[in-house]
């Protein structure tokens, strides 16, 4: 029997990982929680704005952004680490197979991504049904940006999970703790630190620092890009214009955000593979 090609091997790992992820209770819980929150926000968005009839869609979608920013990185990190940081002894068995370690990692990540994307599709689909059966298609573009941002966050934090797992082969508890710390830093602590440092600097430097911070942290990059996509320049008031000016125009700002997301999607995976290759199992 001929050994399957590299791509086919990746496919095999992806398929197996997808099956495992789907049967995991965590994926089911995530799917249910995400769908419930998305539905709740989508359904109540019109009430929360006081029924003012003004930018209702934008406010609803902005609330969905908060759900995504909070939940998606956390889930991707936890499920990713659960799946990739194997129990003691399992890694030795797995990597003893005649398959490159990179192939294993990429295949597993693809499978996990499919599972999480499917879970999010349920939530977004349900929210979209509720929102767009009331609101018409005006916000469809912004909603698409939000879905894309959510998928990007999934990819980025799965990659980070792989990186954490690669450094903690056989130490799952430690990997999980590291994942939680990573989430807290990326979602809350980083912004507070950026604002704290910025408040010590002079105005011009401070603004540049904050814009750099937005581009550096993938959570901020996705948040900024998504909110600008949904609400336009009104998203951050004058700060939107400051952002465009410092980034050198709208096109450059969008490119910089995309570049940040792209680098964060690829670099952790590459580093994880490099780390695994060097690991002495």
């Amino acid at each position: 029997m001929a050994t399957p090609g590299r791509l086919a091997t990746i496919g095999l790992f992806a398929s197996q990982e997808l099956t495992l992820a789907v049967r995991s209770r965590w994926t089911a819980i995530f799917a249910v929680v995400f769908a419930a929150l998305a539905l709740a926000v989508g359904g109540s968005g019109y009430i929360l704005t006081g029924g003012l009839g003004l930018q209702d869609f934008a406010r609803t979608a902005s609330s969905l952004v908060q759900v995504v920013l909070l939940l998606v990185p956390l889930t991707a990190l936890l499920i990713g680490v659960q799946a990739l940081a194997t129990e003691r002894g399992a890694a030795e068995l797995l990597f003893a197979q005649p398959v490159a370690r990179g192939t294993v990692v990429v295949g597993k990540l693809l499978g996990l991504f499919q599972a999480l994307a499917a879970a999010q599709a349920i939530g977004f689909g349900a929210a979209g049904l509720v929102i767009f059966s009331q609101a018409g298609q005006e916000g469809a573009g912004g909603f698409a940006v939000l879905v894309a941002g959510s998928l990007a966050l999934t990819a980025i934090f799965l990659g980070l999970a792989a990186f954490i797992a690669a450094g903690n082969v056989g130490r799952r508890a430690r990997a999980l703790a590291l994942a939680l710390v990573t989430w807290f830093v990326a979602v809350v602590l980083f912004d507070i630190a950026a604002l704290g440092v910025a408040s010590l600097l002079r105005s011009g430097h401070a603004s540049r620092l904050l814009v750099a911070a937005v581009l550096l942290n993938p959570v901020d990059a996705v948040r900024t890009g998504t909110l600008l996509g949904i609400e336009g320049d009104a998203a951050f008031g004058a700060a939107s214009l400051a952002f465009f000016r410092i980034a050198g125009g709208r096109t450059w700002a969008a490119s910089a955000l995309l570049l940040s997301v792209a680098v964060w999607s690829v670099a952790p995976v590459a580093l994880a593979i490099w780390r695994l290759r060097r690991a002495d199992l």
Binding site: L70, V188, S199, L210, V211, D220, R223, L227, F236, A242
Partner: peptide, 21 residues
């Protein structure tokens, strides 16, 4: 307190850091 001389601060105004602060 930031806004006076730091327009870009609003980029963070609806993040979780803002709520925490």
């Amino acid at each position: 307190h930031f806004r006076g001389n730091l327009t870009a601060a609003d980029l963070f105004s609806d993040g979780f850091a803002a709520a925490a602060l």
